[in-house]
Amino acid sequence: MTASSSSRRRFVRNAAGTTALALIPYQGRPAHAGTSEAAVPFEPVFFTPAELEFLSAACERIFPQDDLGPGAVALGVPFFIDRQMDTPYGKGELWYLSGPFHEGPPQLGYQLPFAPRDLYRKGIAAADAYARQRRGRKFSGLSANDQIDLLTAFEGGGVQFPELNARMFFEQLRRNTLEGVFADPVYGGNRAMQGWTLLGFPGARADFMDWVDQNGAPYPFGPVSLARQPL
C-alpha cells in the first residue's frame, strides 16, 4: 500500500468517526429553503458556523433536492468542501499565485491572488453583505427564490465584490459543489454514492470487458466506492 492510500484510510476513519466529537450543531437549513433530507452534522475544520450556513444554502441551490434525488446538503457537499480547504488544492498550491496581478480579458483566465480558501472567506463575507444590503437578510435567511436570484446575479458577472468579481466566487462554488456531489465518497461528499447512482456511473468498477458494446442496454450493476462500501 502506498502512503497516500493509508492516509486516505485514516481520513475515512476520521470522517466516519465525527459523531464521537463535540459537534457544532448544523444549522445551515434556512426556514424558507428547506431540504427534505437531513444533513449529517459535522465539525468544520475551515469554515466558521456562519460561513457554513452560507455554504450549505448556496450549494443546495446549485444542486437542489428534487424528484430525481438528494441535493448537495444531503450528499455531504459542505463537509466535502470544508475538508478540501485543508488540502494543497484548498491552500492554492496547485495554482500559480505569483504576482504581479493584473485583470485581463476573460479568456486569459483567473488572475486573482487568492487560493480557493481565500475565495470562500472573501466571497462568503461579500455575498452575505450583498444579501443584507439588497434583501435585508444574510443569504441563508432568504427564501430559495431570493437565493437563486442572487446566485444568478453573481454568475452573470455584473456584481462586483470589494476584492473580486462575484462571478469568480460563483464559479468556484459551482465547481466544488459538483466535485462534492460526484467525487468518490471517501472525500466526504456523494453520500452513499447517490450522486453516481443518479447518473448511472458505476464508480470504481473499472472493468467493462463484457460490456464494451451491449447495443445500448443499460449497465446492470450499481456503483462501488474506492472504499468498497457506502459511507
Binding site: Y96, G104, P105, G109, Y110, Q111
Partner: peptide
Amino acid sequence: RNTMNQTALPYRQ
C-alpha cells in the same frame, strides 16, 4: 496573450 498588442497574463490554473 492572444495578440502582440496585449499584455500576456500567467496561465494560473
